[in-house]
């Protein structure tokens, strides 16, 4: 096992101090900015730990999309911070007893050997994964795990993404959002978006294709596509298609449906659900990846657009009884 170098220790200290900044800084805006930096440093540490796929996803999602969402939430929130009316944690009999019970439980787990299990360096599943990699239709082991060995997990995950989008739909008011075209949008942003969005779409396509043999794949490509969509929404909201339109709805479920349909097709030919026959695996994976990329990109864009629209037009949420401005 490799010994930790000083740069490793520095990176870990940086991660911990940034996390402290996110949680401890008195200014919430600064906390969010530090969170974005935290995401980028996490991407660095993924690279250090030989996980470039994760670094790509973290940089695009953890630092990019989520950071932007938090910034929007803060900007629209203004001076009023939403907080639950919680009481400070106090030392009374209940908290002391639960704390003691927790300690007893942890000691019990330690006695069972739960914590020492990971100290013995097992081989993990490295060998089984690489042994049958030639049957999976792709040569990037992470893509093989996600879309072949554990395709069932990914199928459910795409389902969760769709469920999130559905819940946001369910919470939205019925009336369609009115975009006022008189609103002035930043001209610089518009020309920037005009220049960069085609390249982002191109990069998403490349990431999708490259996922078969090097770091990349549907999630990274979807995150890139989502970023492009958010940029489009920022620069010219009216241009973005309505998320309740038929095309948009079909694209949102495309990933989930492609998994369903191909899985059932596999069953019709005598395989298990989502078990790809090895000579067709490449095509099956490419199909579900393309559909999932489209769905993920559109879901991220839709989530961003919903959050922003929701926070922009608060009036539609008043039932009319109170006349707060």
């Amino acid at each position: 096992m490799a010994a930790a170098t000083p740069s490793d220790i520095l990176l870990c200290l940086l991660i911990l101090s940034l996390a402290l900044g996110v949680l401890g800084d008195a200014n919430p805006f600064r906390g969010v900015i530090i969170f974005i930096v935290f995401g980028l440093v996490m991407a660095l540490s993924w690279t250090r730990l030989d996980a470039p796929d994760l670094a790509l996803a973290e940089a695009a999602l953890g630092a990019g999309v989520i950071g932007v969402l938090f910034l929007v939430a803060l900007r629209k929130q203004g001076e009023k911070d939403v907080s639950l009316a919680t009481q400070r944690l106090r030392l009374n009999s209940v908290t002391i007893i639960s704390g003691l019970l927790l300690i007893v439980f942890i000691v019990y787990l330690g006695a069972l050997g739960v914590f020492s299990a990971w100290k013995t360096p097992g081989k993990g599943l490295v060998e089984p994964v690489y042994e049958s990699l030639h049957l999976t239709g792709v040569s990037n082991p992470v893509t093989a795990v996600i879309l072949n060995y554990r395709a069932y997990d990914t199928f459910l995950e795409i389902g969760v993404l769709y469920l999130v989008m559905l819940s946001v739909f369910a919470l939205q008011p019925d009336e369609k959002a009115k975009f006022t075209s008189t609103e002035q949008y930043d001209r610089m942003l518009r020309s920037y978006a005009r220049g960069i969005v085609p390249f982002m779409v191109l990069a998403a396509g490349y990431l999708l294709w490259a996922g078969a043999f090097r770091p990349g794949g549907a999630f990274q490509a979807g995150a890139m596509l989502g970023g492009a969509g958010i940029l489009l929404h920022l620069s010219r909201p009216a241009m973005l298609l309505d998320m309740r339109g038929l095309v948009a709805r079909l694209s949102l479920v495309a990933g989930f449906f492609s998994f369903c349909i191909l899985g059932i097709l596999a069953m019709l030919y005598g395989f298990d659900f989502l078990q790809w026959p090895s000579h067709l695996a490449k095509h099956a994976i490419l199909t579900v990846e393309t559909a999932s990329t489209l769905s993920i990109g559109l879901t991220l864009t839709g989530l961003y657009a919903s959050v922003e629209r929701k926070l922009i037009s608060p009036a539609i949420f008043y039932s009319g009884e109170e006349d707060n401005p």
Binding site: L54, V129, V145, R150, V160, L161, Y304
Partner: peptide, 25 residues
């Protein structure tokens, strides 16, 4: 490296991002 945990975490990052979006909403 073991690619199976990488796959798990990759899906975790995406799920976490969408759950955060729902939280903010």
């Amino acid at each position: 490296p073991d690619p199976v945990p990488h796959g798990l975490v990759l899906t975790g990052i995406v799920i976490g991002a969408s759950a955060t979006a729902l939280m903010i909403y």
